[in-house]
Measured scan of single mutants.
Amino acid sequence: PEDLERKVRELQKNGVSPEQIEKILRRDGVDEREVQELVKKVS
């Protein structure tokens, strides 16, 4: 979803590592495939 992507970009802009971003997304209940997609987009 659009807002998730925005969140991921925000986190990355704040210097959060892709690994941390993955953890955060998983903790928020984002589905694994979605997590991978989002992280791939920003890394």
Rank of each mutant, 00 (worst) to 15 (best):
N14A: 13
V16A: 11
Q20H: 06
S17K: 06
N14L: 14
G29H: 02
R27V: 05
L11A: 01
Q12T: 12
Q20T: 08
V16M: 14
P18N: 11
G29I: 02
V16F: 15
K7G: 01
E32Y: 06
R9L: 08
Q36W: 06
L38D: 01
E19I: 07
K7D: 01
Q36N: 06
E22Y: 12
E19P: 03
L38W: 12
R6G: 07
D31R: 04
K41V: 06
V35Y: 06
L4V: 06
R26Q: 05
I21W: 03
R26L: 13
K41E: 05
E10K: 09
R6C: 09
E32I: 08
L38F: 05
Q12M: 15
G29S: 02
N14V: 07
G29D: 02
E10H: 09
V39L: 15
E34Q: 13
E5P: 04
L4D: 01
L25H: 00
G15M: 03
E32V: 06
R27K: 08
D28V: 10
D28S: 13
K7P: 00
L4G: 01
L25W: 00
E10C: 15
V8I: 10
E37S: 07
V42S: 05
K7V: 08
V16E: 04
K13T: 05
K23I: 14
Q36A: 09
L25C: 04
S17W: 03
P18M: 15
P18W: 15
S43C: 14
R27G: 07
Q20R: 05
I24Y: 03
Q20C: 13
D28Y: 15
V39F: 07
E22V: 15
E22M: 15
E32G: 05
V8N: 00
K40I: 06
G15R: 04
K23Q: 13
V42Y: 11
L11D: 00
S43K: 12
E10A: 11
G15W: 02
L4C: 04
S43I: 15
L11H: 01
P18K: 13
V8C: 04
E22C: 15
K41F: 06
R33Q: 09
V35W: 07
S17F: 03
R9H: 05
E19V: 06
L4T: 04
V39A: 03
V8G: 00
E22N: 04
E2N: 12
L25V: 01
P1Y: 14
S17Y: 02
E37G: 05
R33G: 08
G15C: 08
R26A: 07
P1M: 14
R26M: 11
D31S: 14
E19R: 09
V16D: 02
Q20L: 07
K13F: 07
R33T: 10
D31K: 05
R9Y: 08
L11F: 05
K23V: 12
R33S: 10
N14D: 06
R27T: 07
S43M: 15
L4N: 05
R26D: 01
D28K: 12
P18C: 11
E2T: 13
P1Q: 12
K13H: 07
G15T: 01
V42M: 13
D28N: 11
L11K: 00
V42T: 07
L11I: 00
G15Y: 02
K13G: 05
R26C: 04
E10P: 00
E19T: 07
R26N: 03
K13P: 00
D31W: 04
K41W: 11
E22Q: 08
E2A: 13
R33D: 10
K13N: 08
V39H: 02
R33E: 09
K23G: 08
K23M: 13
E19H: 08
R26F: 05
R9G: 02
I21N: 00
E19D: 09
E22S: 09
E34H: 11
V30M: 09
R26S: 06
K23N: 12
I21K: 00
D28R: 13
V30F: 14
E10D: 09
N14F: 10
E22T: 12
D28L: 15
I21S: 00
V42Q: 04
D31F: 03
D31C: 06
K13I: 07
V35K: 01
V16Y: 15
P1N: 13
E22L: 15
S43R: 14
L4H: 04
S43P: 05
L4P: 03
V35M: 05
L38H: 03
V8A: 04
I24Q: 04
K40V: 06
I24A: 03
E19Q: 10
R9Q: 05
Q20K: 05
I21F: 01
R26Y: 05
I24V: 04
K40Q: 10
E32L: 07
G15F: 02
P1D: 10
K7E: 03
G29P: 01
K41G: 08
V8W: 07
R9N: 03
V42R: 03
E10I: 12
Q12L: 15
R33W: 10
G29E: 02
Q20S: 06
E34D: 10
R9F: 07
V35N: 01
L38V: 10
Q36K: 10
G15P: 00
R6Y: 10
I21M: 04
P1W: 15
D3M: 10
V39K: 03
E5R: 11
P1E: 10
K7C: 10
R33N: 10
E34A: 13
V16N: 07
Q20G: 07
V16K: 09
D3T: 11
E2G: 13
R27M: 12
E10Y: 13
R6E: 09
L11Y: 07
E19K: 09
K40Y: 11
L4K: 03
Q12R: 14
K13R: 13
R9V: 04
R27E: 13
E34W: 14
P18E: 05
E19C: 12
V8T: 01
Q36C: 10
V42D: 03
S43D: 06
L25I: 02
L25N: 00
V42A: 09
D3K: 07
E34F: 14
I24T: 03
E10R: 13
L38T: 04
Q36H: 12
S17G: 06
V8E: 00
K40H: 10
E5K: 10
I21H: 00
E34Y: 14
E5I: 13
